[in-house]
Amino acid sequence: MAAGISNEKYNHIDEIKNEVREILEDLIAQAKPMEGDVLVVGCSSSEVNAHKLGTFSSEEIGQALFEEISKVASEHKLYVAAQCCEHLNRCLCVERELAIKRGLEIVSVVPKLKAGGSFATAAYKNMDNPVMVETIKAELGMDIGDTLIGMHLRAVAVPVRTKINTVGNAHVVCARTRPKYIGGERAEYI
């Protein structure tokens, strides 16, 4: 196996799937997204498995988390945008349908375990019609392992505190977005 790639079996797959589901359901309950909104997810399988970011990519963990996240997103009629690692400049794997609807420019690359990451690799393998895009402006975000998803959130990002904030050993941060407030002292906001 290549350096930095894990081929060991992770013993807590059901546990991490339950944790990610609980966090995501909590995020959705608080954020109240609309049908067709985008959830951007960054994920370090290394961090989930108690290793330093980018040092121990696990195909098994990436696959399990993508399955659970895409299942929950589908139940709530949300799109998933899977952020790649820094080696692919944090580009994203999305469904072609979403890229067309949002007018996103498709780029040519295929994520792999050490160039894209395990989560984006799983997304590319399992989406119905995956394409890669350079950027997106998502309404919701879930960052598993401090992978820095902020560049792909709409302005204005608002932190969402969920009941639990770890998946495996990885720290999780969630966000929703809201429209910008404009105007002065006479302005009223919704």
Rank of each mutant, 00 (worst) to 15 (best):
G145I: 02
M132F: 08
V158F: 05
K114Y: 08
V110H: 01
K137W: 10
A120N: 14
Y124F: 15
A123V: 09
L113M: 14
Y124V: 01
G141Q: 10
T121Y: 05
F119H: 12
I144N: 04
I106G: 03
M132R: 03
A122M: 04
G145F: 04
G117A: 04
L148I: 10
V131F: 07
A155T: 06
A155Q: 11
V160H: 03
T147L: 00
H152Y: 06
M142W: 10
N129G: 03
T121N: 04
L153E: 06
G150C: 00
V133Y: 13
V110G: 01
A138Y: 14
K114H: 07
L140E: 07
A157N: 01
F119T: 13
L148M: 09
M127E: 03
V107A: 02
R154D: 09
I106T: 08
E139N: 12
A157F: 03
S108G: 00
I144C: 11
L113D: 11
T147P: 12
D143G: 12
R161T: 14
V107Q: 02
V107F: 02
A122G: 08
G141N: 05
T147Y: 02
R161N: 13
P130G: 09
L148D: 07
I149N: 01
H152W: 03
E139T: 05
G145R: 01
P130H: 11
D146K: 08
V133G: 11
V156W: 11
K112G: 10
Y124D: 05
I106C: 04
